[in-house]
């Protein structure tokens, strides 16, 4: 049980794919300019990552070293293509916005990284939990960046959310003119930089507090 806890903590915080491993930056920077695109791609990544981890973990005893990498890529590419087709048939308008980046999930190093480092060496349940938590770790960073960049860059929040859930338009409008830099790619680097700095600051403070507590009087 402790193992699963530490896997969860790894994925969500201490070894977060976006904040610590800095993997998958390309989709992270590209789709984080609005909340909806961030949520859409984050969910697709979460699903594909979990499924890929589970399948690779099931096959791990079959796979000889010589064919392990090609098989992992094959499985990831298959799952991404399936997800892409599914999106086109159920969420067509969302696909019009993030379609380009769905195909790029194949090259998202988070997936191959987890497959190679974790799933090909660990049993099914652990791999599944690793996939879910790594995916959620990626998702929450994406959502925070999407929220911040949409509010500051476009002056709105939840614009187009009806593309994912139902028909109701729930857009919140703050201003008509956003701060352009945040909507452009540099805004993504700035937001991510701030998030990493914040995380490191929190970690540092916790370590220092730990130190003062453990020093005997």
């Amino acid at each position: 049980m402790n193992d699963y806890l530490s896997i969860t903590k790894d994925g969500l915080w201490s070894n977060n794919p976006a904040l610590v491993q800095l993997l998958g930056l390309c989709p992270l920077l590209a789709v984080s300019n609005t909340f909806v695109t961030a949520l859409g791609l984050g969910l697709v990544t979460l699903l594909v990552l979990t499924a890929a981890n589970m399948i690779i973990s099931l096959l791990r005893n079959l796979l000889h070293d010589a064919i392990r990498l090609p098989v992992q890529i094959l499985i990831i590419a298959t799952l991404v293509t399936l997800a892409d087709i599914a999106l086109q048939s159920w969420y067509f308008e969302l696909h019009q916005r993030i379609g380009l980046f769905v195909a790029l999930i194949v090259t998202n190093c988070t997936l191959l990284g987890r497959a190679e480092v974790f799933a090909s060496r660990n049993p099914l349940l652990a791999s599944m939990i690793d996939g879910i938590t790594m995916g959620l770790g990626f998702l929450w960073v994406l959502l925070i960046m999407g929220t911040a960049r949409e509010i500051f860059g476009h002056g709105t929040l939840f614009h187009n959310l009806h593309l994912l859930f139902g028909d109701k338009d729930v857009t919140l409008h703050f201003t008509d003119t956003g701060f352009l830099l945040m909507a452009l790619p540099p805004g993504a680097f700035l937001t991510l930089g701030c998030l990493i700095a914040l995380k490191n600051y929190l970690e540092m403070r916790r370590r220092e507090r730990g130190k003062t507590l453990s020093v005997p009087n």
Binding site: H64, V71, L74
Partner: peptide, 16 residues
């Protein structure tokens, strides 16, 4: 090994 790779490719291809 070749057989494994072949089978997986066939399965993936037919799924897609």
């Amino acid at each position: 090994r070749q057989l494994t790779l072949l089978m997986l490719t066939i399965v993936s291809g037919s799924l897609v």
